[in-house]
């Protein structure tokens, strides 16, 4: 009797996990399969749940392929759809600029805070409260300021607006990573005649290197995902980022561009998929701005 109830419990356990997996993975499956379907299958009724008739033509279309698509030379949608390539470039450049500068300034600030014990909980709370500011509140004054400076529709405008997210994030996380370094090591370096800059660059940074990489990646992903500010500060393909490009698919009528839209969505997940295995260890820390350590 006891064995049987344990067996039932075990089965129930696995069934619940399986249903959670279906719930969380089905939408991702759906996006990927939609991006690979032929146009006819995308909007077919009844719904095509699974098919082996797959192609990469939606991706070719997004990258401005001019040859035949789905076996037809003249694809009507082609003329409406700008190539995704410049948007990807913009996203990468803005992401690298904002997370790179954010990491540099954040590391200096974090070292200063840890080494000289400046600020206390008030500074911590202030940095944390910056995480709370809604992007839309930032977007309005940033827009007017950058318009006056003539910087609208440049990488610099979006990247410096994203600094507002990446500096506090990097600082708070690196405070945690730097505090993990035993104080003896730093003291030893200082006693051996290292300057603060020397101790920082030759002792602290190398020891915290894995953390620095994780901070850079998470800050990059945050910038890559951000829509509202990027949308407000840009107007053309010169600086518009990937999420801004994606919004153009929300406006189209049902079905017209769903294949390419799904393909764009899959492309948008690529940076996350590449880095997910590395950052998993740091994710709990990163998402809570260092408040919880795993």
């Amino acid at each position: 009797m006891k064995v049987k109830s344990k067996y039932v419990k075990h089965c129930l356990h696995y069934m619940l996990i399986c249903s959670a997996l279906v719930f969380y993975l089905f939408p991702i499956y759906w996006l990927i399969i939609t991006s690979l379907k032929f146009p006819g299958d995308v909007t077919a009724s009844p719904v095509v749940w699974f098919t082996t008739k797959l192609t990469l033509d939606n991706y070719r279309l997004l990258f401005g392929h001019t040859g035949a698509l789905w076996g037809a030379k003249q694809y009507v949608g082609r003329s409406f759809l700008p190539s995704i390539a410049p948007y990807i470039t913009n996203s990468i450049m803005i992401g690298v600029l904002s997370s790179g500068f954010g990491l540099l300034l954040g590391a200096l600030l974090a070292y200063g805070i840890v080494r000289f014990r400046i600020g206390g909980s008030r500074l911590y709370n202030w940095l944390l409260s910056l995480r709370m500011i809604p992007p839309v509140v930032v977007a309005i004054p940033m827009f007017t300021v950058f318009r006056t400076l003539g910087l609208i529709d440049t990488w610099w405008a979006v990247a410096s607006a994203h600094l507002l997210m990446s500096i506090p994030f990097s600082t708070l996380l690196l405070i945690g990573f730097f505090s993990d370094i035993p104080g003896d090591i730093m003291e030893a370096a200082l006693l051996d005649g290292c300057t603060n800059l020397g101790a920082f660059s030759r002792v602290v940074l190398p020891l915290a290197a894995p953390g620095l990489v994780a901070v850079f990646i998470i800050a990059f992903l945050t910038s890559w995902n951000e829509l509202l500010i990027a949308n407000v500060l840009t107007t053309t393909a010169k600086a518009q980022t990937f999420p801004v490009y994606t919004t153009s698919f929300a406006q189209v009528e049902r079905g017209t561009a769903w294949g390419p839209a799904a393909a764009g969505g899959v492309i948008g997940m690529v940076p996350m998929l590449i880095s997910s295995f590395y950052i998993q260890r740091y994710l709990v820390r990163g998402l809570t701005m260092g408040a919880v350590k795993e």
């Binding site: 969380y24 939408p27 991702i28 997940m269 996350m272």
Partner: peptide, 13 residues
Amino acid sequence: VPMMIPPVVVGLN
């Protein structure tokens, strides 16, 4: 995985 997908893509999906 869901948490790391760009929210725009989640919306689209």
